[in-house]
Computed example of a mutant assay.
Amino acid sequence: MSIFGSDLTLALRLADAADLTTLARFRSLDLKVERKPDRTPVTDADVAVEDAIRVTLAEQRPEDAVAGEERGGTVAEGRTWVIDPIDGTKNFLRGTPVWATLIALVADGVPVVGVASAPALGRRWWAAAGQGAWASEAGAEPRRISVSGVTDLADAYLSTTHLGSWVEHHSRAAYLALADACWETRAFGDFWQHCLVAEGAIDVAAEAIVNPWDVAAMQVLVEEAGGRFSDLTGVPRYDRGSALSSNNHLHDAVLGLLSH
């Protein structure tokens, strides 16, 4: 059993509570939406979920730091919980069911616990260092998940979030070269594409721009599923502004194409 087992249990409890709040506000006619300085939307559900998580963490893990999308904070030395109350807020406010609460525990700079709970999809993914990666769907028994065995980009399934982000933050030409090298491409976007990599449904997910709370949970999930996670230059960290997850077999080939 991983030393982070009790932390994973707590993270799953936090996700349970978050799901009750987010589902209650999803497609609500009185949903309150504001714009943050970076022009991204925030709803009253985002704030309510993060605030509730912070209250519970203050009670259960008072020595740990917390960094969240809505209330701020930084990843400190030692242990920090990194929270995205609703990843996919644009989907959430448009009534599209692809959004999730992301909860990660980072210890000494390394994500060691990760949960992605997508209640409108009826799905949840989680992992802890040394315990493998797991998923559940619609109340079924949890199943251990693993990445695919695809070894050739010509057979690979690729996903990104928003193609336009590659123009400003990396290189759309490089991404299109990668897309041309792959068998099939989609834009599943946000947390979902990394979860799909972890469970072997797709082979590569690449994002030109991310925040730490977007992918901290994804790093431990993908790695515990046997995959590889890095930024777009190959550095295996969640906090360098971009993200690439793969089944490991394809990672170096993808990095090679994205470097041009």
Rank of each mutant, 00 (worst) to 15 (best):
I3P: 13
L10H: 03
A15P: 02
A17Y: 00
L20E: 13
T21M: 13
R25Q: 12
R35K: 13
R39P: 03
D46V: 07
V49M: 07
V49H: 00
D51Q: 13
L57K: 06
A58Y: 01
E63R: 14
D64V: 15
A65Q: 11
R71M: 14
G73Y: 02
A76F: 03
E77M: 11
W81E: 03
W81G: 00
I83D: 00
D87R: 02
K90R: 15
N91I: 09
V106S: 07
A107Y: 02
V115Q: 01
V115E: 03
V115I: 10
A118N: 02
A120Y: 04
A129N: 08
G130W: 08
A133N: 02
A135H: 06
A135C: 12
S136K: 06
S136Y: 00
S136I: 08
E141C: 07
E141Q: 13
P142N: 06
P142I: 09
R143F: 04
I145C: 04
I145K: 03
G149R: 14
T151N: 00
D152R: 14
A156P: 15
Y157S: 12
L158P: 15
G164E: 05
G164R: 13
G164Y: 11
S165F: 12
H170D: 11
R172T: 09
A174I: 05
L178P: 11
C182F: 02
W183Y: 11
E184Y: 06
A187K: 06
A187S: 13
F188S: 10
F188H: 10
D190T: 14
F191H: 11
Q193I: 07
L196Q: 07
A198K: 01
G200Y: 02
D203E: 09
A208H: 04
N211M: 10
A216W: 01
A216E: 00
M218P: 07
Q219L: 11
V222W: 04
E223G: 09
E224C: 15
G227T: 01
G234S: 05
V235P: 11
V235G: 02
P236D: 06
Y238C: 06
D239G: 06
D239E: 05
A243V: 11
N247V: 08
H249A: 15
H249N: 15
D252G: 13
D252W: 03
G256Q: 12
L258P: 06
S259H: 04
